[in-house]
Structure formats: structure tokens, C-alpha cells
Simulated assay, not measured.
Amino acid sequence: MTSQHPRRRASLLVAVACLTALGSTALTSCSPIVEKRGYVLDEKNLKRIKPNQTTKEQVRDIMGSPSTVSTIPDGPEGEAYYYISSTFETEAFYPPEEVDRTVVAVYFSKEDVVDQVAYYGLEDGQIVDLQTRATPTRGKELTVLGQIFSNLGRFNKAKDDKKGSGPTPGRPGG
């Protein structure tokens, strides 16, 4: 009896270790994977940008290349630099979901001097569907059965008889 007691204790410890490992694996697999994308914002650099003092070249030196530049550089307000950073979370097998977005917009005057620095978040954005993968058409959309049965009743025997009422050349009896 004394020789079985240490074996029982060892098997119990192995079982507890396996259950602990299994439980910790299950818990960590449920936690989301956090991924940062885009520009890494540095508050110290943002504080160095002063409206009506900092030039466009100085902004590039301080902040680096922008994520994007305004599409209308010669507009009435001048050009704008946008520094965009996003945080995505992925849980299990689901697609990544954006949970946070920060956009720092640096607006320039016509003289290429900083006019304003603005901050935008995820709540300020609007969803724009750039690719719907559907071409709108006029008319009705029919199912397969609708297409098959749509021609029923369109045949008019009287019209068909008038068109081909004479003998057909090259056929027997004609």
C-alpha cells in the first residue's frame, strides 16, 4: 500500500498540470489579438507643430511622411497632411475589426505654413462603399423558375399561322 500512494499522488499532479495547461490555453485563445496599423503618433512631436509658425518642410522633418496628402492641393484652403493610425482586434476566427482610429490632419495655408492641426477619431468617420461588386440594371430580377415560366403564354398560334401560311420552298408538299 505504501508503494501505490506516491504513484497516485504523481498521477494526480500530472492530471492537475494537464488541466491547468488546458484551461490556460482555452483562456488565451479567447483573448483578442490586438494589431496597430499605420502611423505611430508621438505626442512630443505633435506639440512641436505650432499654427502660423511651422512650415510644411518642418512638419515633414518633425512628423515624417504623411499617410496621405489632400487630393486637391491647390484648393482655397491649401494643402493638408493626414497621419492615420488604427487599432484592430481579431477574435478567434472572425475577421479583424477596427476598434480605434486616430487621424491627425495638418492644414496648411497658401503660404505653406501650418494653419490648423485637427484630430479625428473613429466616431468622426463615415463608411464609403468604394466597391459594391454589383452593376445596377433596369427591369425585374427573375428567379430561375421565373425565367423558365416567363415565356408561357407568349406563343400566339394565329400570328404564327399568318406568317407561314404559304408552302415553304424546298420542302415536300410545298
Score class of each variant (00 low, 15 high):
residue 143 T to S: 00
residue 27 L to A: 14
residue 161 D to E: 15
residue 167 P to E: 11
residue 57 E to L: 12
residue 38 G to W: 06
residue 40 V to T: 15
residue 5 H to W: 10
residue 38 G to P: 02
residue 77 E to R: 14
residue 52 N to V: 08
residue 173 G to E: 07
residue 1 M to N: 04
residue 140 K to M: 06
residue 63 M to N: 03
residue 57 E to M: 12
residue 159 K to L: 12
residue 168 T to C: 11
residue 50 K to P: 05
residue 21 A to V: 12
residue 150 S to M: 02
residue 24 S to L: 15
residue 101 R to K: 10
residue 163 K to D: 05
residue 68 T to V: 08
residue 100 D to I: 00
residue 77 E to Q: 13
residue 19 L to A: 14
residue 21 A to W: 12
residue 81 Y to T: 01
residue 34 V to Q: 11
residue 68 T to G: 00
residue 67 S to G: 10
residue 27 L to E: 06
residue 143 T to C: 00
residue 134 A to V: 09
residue 7 R to M: 09
residue 3 S to R: 05
residue 43 E to Q: 08
residue 34 V to A: 05
residue 130 L to P: 03
residue 69 V to W: 03
residue 5 H to V: 14
residue 159 K to C: 05
residue 64 G to W: 06
residue 63 M to L: 13
residue 39 Y to I: 02
residue 84 I to R: 03
residue 117 V to T: 02
residue 140 K to D: 08
residue 26 A to R: 07
residue 29 S to M: 11
residue 135 T to D: 08
residue 118 A to N: 13
residue 7 R to F: 13
residue 37 R to I: 10
residue 68 T to K: 04
residue 97 E to V: 12
residue 173 G to K: 12
residue 53 Q to N: 11
residue 119 Y to V: 04
residue 121 G to T: 15
residue 139 G to Q: 03
residue 156 N to L: 07
residue 92 A to H: 11
residue 50 K to Y: 14
residue 174 G to K: 09
residue 129 D to H: 10
residue 4 Q to Y: 07
residue 24 S to C: 11
residue 143 T to H: 00
residue 134 A to K: 02
residue 126 Q to S: 12
residue 101 R to M: 12
residue 14 V to R: 13
residue 84 I to H: 01
residue 150 S to T: 01
residue 24 S to V: 15
residue 3 S to M: 09
residue 99 V to M: 03
residue 138 R to K: 09
residue 153 G to A: 00
residue 49 I to K: 12
residue 135 T to Y: 05
residue 148 I to P: 00
residue 110 K to T: 08
residue 146 G to R: 00
residue 43 E to G: 07
residue 149 F to H: 00
residue 16 V to K: 03
